[in-house]
Amino acid sequence: MSAAASSIPSAADLAGLFEADGVLLYAIEAQDLSIVDIWPEHASAGSLKLQVGFGVTGLVARTGKPVLLEADSPRNSLHRQLLGLKPQQTVARMCLPLRGLDEEAGVVGVLAVHRSPRRPFGPDDLEAAGPIATVLGLRLHAEQLWRAVNRHRTERDRLMKQAISAQEAERRRIAFDLHDGVTTALASMSFHLSAADLTVSELAAHDDSEASMRAQELERARAELVSARVLADMAYNQTRAAISGLHSLVLDDLGLVAAIESLVQMASRDEGPSIELVVDPAADTDDLPNHAAAALYRILQEALANAVKHAEADRIVLSLRRVGDSIVIGCADDGKGFDQEERRNARTMDADGAQHFGLSSIAERCAIIEASLRVESVPERGTTMLVELPL
């Protein structure tokens, strides 16, 4: 018996061990007992639901105490079918509680063994079944924990996708609002300022000696208009840049690779380091979920912005490749780098006391999509960031 108890026996094994006519193994789900193993097999076993606290099996589940019955006759018709009972027929039963790993788990299931009333179960059977019940309880608890983990993981993935999708939708809405409202107004203002400047120029051209004071005032007005137009153009360009930062229409329309290419092109317009993009031809991203593509785009966007702003680099290389079933993106620069140990042990502060949140923001985005992040940096030898997302 001890050798059998050291393994995890099936219902058929237990029937042989106890010379029983049948075995039913129940697991507790909420307030119901459901069959997870049965011998002899029965097509309707999955339909039986016994409520915790009711009937012999339910009582064992609630009290945690084993029960021996010399002659039992369950009232549930399906239960009787599974026990192979005819009308008015009785059966000897042994029901044991199956406990989980700790007291908090409590009873996680019930082992029910039955045979002819002519051979009722006794204390020796109950004692022999104890170690087996312990093993079965641990197995049931482990399975329940595994299912709970999978449920939580599935729910987490669903909420994560919803959160990223909602975030991108809000970015899209703000970008469209800026485009349709602010940039249109700024463009119109710039047009009117140009027209006013032209009018002032024409008036100044008709100046004569008797109207010199008026001409000077017109010139001052013209200077003010020119300054206003410069500011309007600056506001327009900054708003356009903000729109591009908020949401990438290229990502929606053409996918991740095209969006990164657009990101590099925009960043390369300004004076600064040389920016390159290396894409592995085998890096197919067609099967990449939309929320994951958006997250990877934001990570590279943040990494590029950090490198341009803080690295003091001459060259920055963005990369995208496929490694097995994973997408790997990277950002490498030849800038000033940093001491990783010091970065871990101290907050990185600007001269005015503002904290850099670049790396922490990237780490948070990686955690949301369950991607791994690796950052390698050496002072005066640059920094390399790699993000790997399993698909």
Rank of each mutant, 00 (worst) to 15 (best):
E41C: 01
E170S: 13
G255S: 05
N76I: 01
S326Y: 01
A11R: 03
W146R: 05
D208W: 03
S244Y: 13
Q51N: 07
A30M: 11
E370Y: 00
I164C: 08
G272E: 09
R118T: 09
L69Q: 02
N345V: 01
R93E: 15
V108P: 08
A293F: 06
E219H: 08
W146K: 11
T384D: 13
G245C: 05
A294M: 08
L14N: 05
R151V: 07
R172H: 11
R75T: 12
R365C: 04
Q162Y: 07
S47W: 02
G55M: 07
D177S: 11
G46K: 02
R222W: 05
D124G: 00
Q88A: 09
D207P: 00
R139T: 02
L251P: 07
E380L: 03
F54Y: 10
F176A: 14
V110Y: 10
D180I: 02
R147H: 10
N345Q: 15
G53Y: 02
M234I: 02
I362V: 12
M266T: 14
E217S: 01
C331T: 05
E19D: 02
R139P: 00
E155W: 04
G181M: 03
Q340L: 14
S165D: 14
L101R: 09
E342A: 06
L69E: 14
A305C: 06
A61C: 07
D180Q: 13
I327C: 11
P117F: 08
A292L: 07
H247K: 01
V308H: 04
L159A: 06
Q144G: 12
A367L: 03
S377E: 10
A195Y: 04
R62H: 11
L296R: 02
E312S: 13
A148I: 00
W146S: 09
E312V: 00
A169G: 08
G64Y: 05
E168F: 03
R99E: 11
S377C: 02
K309P: 03
A129Y: 08
A3H: 13
K49H: 14
P390R: 06
A221F: 10
A307P: 04
A12L: 06
P117T: 06
L288Q: 02
Q355I: 13
D72F: 08
M94G: 05
S209A: 09
P281V: 03
L203I: 15
A20D: 12
L203N: 09
I38Y: 01
A128N: 09
H152L: 15
Q167V: 01
P379M: 06
G245Y: 07
S47Q: 15
S77L: 14
F357H: 13
R347G: 03
W146M: 12
D334E: 08
A283D: 07
T199G: 10
S377Y: 10
R119P: 04
V230I: 09
F191P: 00
A311I: 05
Q89Y: 05
R156T: 09
I316M: 12
A221G: 13
A228Q: 15
L69M: 15
E312P: 00
N150A: 13
G106D: 07
T154P: 00
R173E: 09
F357R: 13
I275M: 10
W39Q: 08
L68W: 05
